[in-house]
Every structure is written in C-alpha cells, then in structure tokens.
C-alpha cells in the first residue's frame, strides 16, 4: 500500500471511529452505568473507572417483577409474528405466483394503510378493547402488533417469493402437485431464509412498539417498553437500576437487529432499497 493510501486509510479510521463513538456514546454510557453503584451513577464528575458490580441486575429482578414484563414482551412479539405470518404467507404466495391485474394496487393499498397514524384510531380501538375486555391483555396487544406489521410482512415475503424461480414451481405443478403442496413442500423451504429475516424484523418491531403498549396495557399485560416507562416517575428513579433494567430490555433486540440489518433495510423500505 502506498503511503498516501495508508495515510488516507488512517485518517478515515480516526474519523469513522470518532463518529461511531459519539453516536453510540449514550448507549454505551447506559450499559456502563448499569454496572455502577447508585452513588457513582449520579456523581457530578462521571466515573469512567470503577469496580463493576452486578448488584443492580440482581436488585431489578428481586424488587420488580421484571420477568413478568419480559415474558409479556416475548409472548406478544413472537405470537404476533406467528399470527401475521399465518395470514401473510398464503397471501404473498398468491400475489407472487398467481398475480392478477389488481395485485399491484392491492400491494400499494397495503402500504398506504401504514400511512394511517395509529393515534388517529386510538379512540375507537380503546373503546372496542374496553367493550371486548381486551384492555390490558396480552391477546389484545398481540392482535394489534400482528395487524400493525402485516403490511410490511406481506411486502417482504412477496419480494422474497418473487426471487424463487417460477420454473421450479411450474415443474411441480406439471407433476400434479396442488397449490398447497406446492406452497408447503417447495416454496417454504426455498424461501426459508427470507421468511426467517421477515420474522426477525417483525419481532424487532413488535418488541420495540411503544404507542399501543403505553395506551392499552397496564400492570397485567405491559411489555418491557411500558415497564421501562414506569421508571420515569421521580420516586422510581434509581439510575443504575434503571440502566440495568434498560440494558436487559434492549440487549436481545440489539443483537437480533445486528444480525438482520441487511434485511431490515429491505423490509422497512418495502423492497425499494436492497
């Protein structure tokens, strides 16, 4: 490597890392604080060097019902993803392999339903939930998340299914396979990587969903997004315990997110950016 090229690379390294550290600083600080004692956490001169302690993690689990809320998050995120997939897979399959004149319009209509701001329908959903005893239930929140993510899931599956060569499916049909056989025996295995990344995105979105969690749930069905928000009241404010609870709430999803970043772009931009 010529020295000019190396100098450029070193400069970029410095710049790239400096920017990355500034942007991620608040998140790193949160994780760091979770290992401090409460006195260190609110010290006016921040401690960079300190003896790491796990007591906050222990305290969060002893003093709060952390696992109850974590369980709610898991059930809602995974349950809503399974429900949405069950609705979306047949639909995306039909659209990708048996398109009609209306398929394009249907897809764009699905996209347009995402333009409806959730808050515009807060009142009716709240009242319907109250009427049907769904307020503060995991079932209710699970349903909402499945519907919220359904358009994105149909879109993502559609773009993945389109990439499966048609010839494979047509050959099977010639051999007398029914559409359902075709779907289960051929398409699903072939499109499995796409289905997995679609599921990961749906789980991430449902895990981090906050609007409906905050408005429709309370102590019983609240997921982690709402549990963490309960720390915002002044009396509940302990910095390092808040940090420990937050770190536990975000860790699984940050890891999933890193694993699926490429698919995330594709899914969230409805296939416009690949």
């Amino acid at each position: 490597m010529s020295s000019k090229k190396l100098r450029r690379k070193l400069l970029m390294t410095a710049l790239g890392w400096a920017v990355a550290l500034v942007i991620s600083f608040p998140a790193l600080w949160l994780v760091l604080t979770s290992f401090k004692t409460e006195t260190e956490a609110i010290s006016r001169i921040p401690h960079i060097l300190f003896r790491a302690t796990l007591e906050n993690y222990v305290a969060v689990q002893e003093r709060t019902t952390y696992f109850h809320f974590a369980g709610n998050s898991v059930i809602v995120a995974i349950g809503s993803t399974i429900l949405a997939l069950a609705l979306a897979i047949p639909c995306a399959y039909a659209m990708a392999f048996m398109p009609t004149k209306r398929t394009r319009d249907t897809l764009l209509w699905m996209l347009s339903t995402k333009m409806m701001p959730s808050v515009g329908v807060l009142v009716p959903i709240y009242l319907i939930f109250r009427e049907m005893n769904l307020l503060d239930t995991r079932t209710g929140l699970l349903l909402i998340n499945a519907l919220l993510n359904l358009p994105i899931i149909v879109w993502m599956l559609y773009t993945f299914f389109k990439e499966v060569p048609r010839e494979v499916l047509e050959a099977a049909r010639m051999d007398g396979a029914s559409p359902l056989r075709e779907l289960y025996d051929l398409l699903l295995p072939l499109a499995m990587p796409g289905i997995v990344s679609t599921s990961l995105l749906a789980i991430i979105l449902a895990w981090n969903e906050a609007f409906w969690s905050l408005t429709l749930t309370a102590a019983k069905a609240a997921p982690l997004t709402a549990f963490v928000a309960s720390f915002s009241s002044p009396e509940g404010l302990f910095y390092s315990k808040l940090s420990a609870a937050s770190t536990m709430a975000i860790a699984p999803i940050v890891i999933l997110g890193w694993l699926s970043q490429k698919q995330l772009v594709r899914g969230l931009t409805f296939g416009a950016v690949k």
């Binding site: 070193l10 390294t13 998140a27 937050s246």
Partner: peptide, 29 residues
C-alpha cells in the same frame, strides 16, 4: 478503514433501542 465493521455496528445501535429506553436515557443521563 480499520475496524469498519465494528464501527458500523456502533452507529446502528441506537435504532434498535426501544423508544422508552432512549427517551429515559437522554432525559436522565
């Protein structure tokens, strides 16, 4: 540049943090 993969990962982190955690983190810390 050196360590580009890890630097990118650090830049992406805030997006995966749930909104209530981000808000509390900025507000308090």
């Amino acid at each position: 540049f050196f360590g580009r993969g890890i630097a990118r990962v650090l830049v992406l982190a805030p997006f995966f943090i749930m909104p209530t955690v981000s808000a509390l983190l900025w507000k308090n810390m």
